[in-house]
Design a protein around this nucleic acid. Structure first.
Lengths: 159, 159
DNA sequence: GCGATGTATTTGCCTTGACAAATATCTTTT
DNA sequence: AAAAGATATTTGTCAAGGCAAATACATCGC
C-alpha cells in the first residue's frame, strides 16, 4: 500500500509514463477517423468515417442486406438504419426489396455512389492509410494487424 | 484505375476480406472497453472505461487540474467536467480549489477512491490487459505499442 | 496599472452509437 | 398448417463525447 517513489520502471503492467494500450487504441483510431474525414472533406465529400466504411463494404461486397452490411462494419442495426437514411438522402445508395426475404432489404450503390467511390473516396482512404503506415515497413504493417487480430481473439475467446 | 476482378490478393491497400486496420482498431478498442467494464462490474464496481482511466491517471499522477487530467486521458474538457461530477458523486474523488490558480481545480482521490483503486480496480484492469495480450510474446507486446505510437505520430505530423 | 489576450471550468447543443421494444416476415416444430 | 421461435428493419430512449459560448481568472505588453 506504500507507494514507493520508484522511478518509472517496466515492472508493473500499468507503466507510469507512456499512454497505455487502451488510450493508444483510442488515440490512433480517432486520429485515423479524423484524417480520413479531413481527406474526404478536402475533396468536397461530406462523409463520416462510418459512412465511408459502409460505402466501402457496399462496393466491395455488392448488393446485400442491411444486417449483413451492419455486421461487415460492426455497427449496431439501429445505427445502420439511420446511416442508410443519410446515404440514401445523399443519393449514394438505394434500398430495394429483397427478392427472397420480404423482411429484408437489398442495399446497393447508385451509379452516382459508385462513381463517387471509384473517382474520389477510395483514393482518399488509401492515401490516409498509406500515410498512417508510412513509418512502418511492410512486414511491420502486417504484424500490426496480426497482433491486433490476436488481441481481439484473446478478448473474445475468454477461456 | 480499372478494377480488374482479381482474386483477393495482398496487392491493393484495401484488402477485400480481412477487417481493415480502421475496423480492427475499433473492434479491439471496444472489446477491451467491454472487458474492463465487465471485470469491474464483476467486482461490484460501477465504473465506465473512461472513469477507470480518469481514476488511474489521478492515482498515478497525484493531485492535478481538470485540464491536465483531461489531457492525460485525451478527453474533451466538457466531458471531463461531467465525468468528474459522476466520480465525485460516487465519492471517489474530490474537487478542491487550486492553490495558485483560482480558475483551476485540484482533483484528487478521496481515501475511499484510493482504497477502491488499490484494492480492486487496479487489479481488474491488469487482469484484462494480461488476458488481452496473453497470446503475444513480451517482445510482441512492446512492438504492438511501438507500432501504434509510430502510426499515431505519422497521422499527427502530417508532413 | 490596464487593456488585450489566453486559459480553466462549466453548460448547452448536436451527433452518434448501443440497447430495447415494436412490427413484419420467415422457419421450425408439432 | 398453426403455433412457437428466430430474424430484419425501424424507432424511441439514453449516455457520451465534441464543439462552441459564457464566465471567471491570469498574464503579457505597453
Amino acid at each position: 500500500m506504500k507507494e514507493l517513489p520508484h522511478p518509472a520502471e517496466t515492472v508493473s503492467p500499468d507503466a507510469t509514463s507512456k499512454p497505455s494500450l487502451g488510450v493508444l487504441l483510442t488515440l490512433v483510431r480517432s486520429e485515423l477517423v479524423r484524417a480520413i474525414e479531413a481527406e474526404l472533406a478536402s475533396q468536397g465529400l461530406d462523409l463520416s468515417f462510418t459512412q465511408y466504411l459502409i460505402l466501402k463494404k457496399a462496393q466491395q461486397l455488392g448488393p446485400l442486406s442491411a444486417t449483413e452490411l451492419a455486421r461487415a462494419v460492426e455497427l449496431d442495426g439501429g445505427a445502420m438504419t439511420r446511416q442508410l437514411d443519410h446515404l440514401e438522402r445523399k443519393g449514394y445508395l438505394r434500398r430495394s426489396p429483397h427478392a427472397q426475404d420480404r423482411r429484408a432489404l437489398r442495399i446497393e450503390l447508385t451509379d452516382a455512389g459508385s462513381r463517387m467511390w471509384q473517382d474520389t473516396a477510395l483514393a482518399c482512404g488509401n492515401r490516409v492509410m498509406v500515410a498512417a503506415q508510412r513509418s512502418l515497413k511492410p512486414i511491420e504493417q502486417t504484424q500490426l494487424c496480426n497482433y491486433l487480430e490476436r488481441v481481439l481473439h484473446a478478448l473474445r475467446d475468454k477461456n
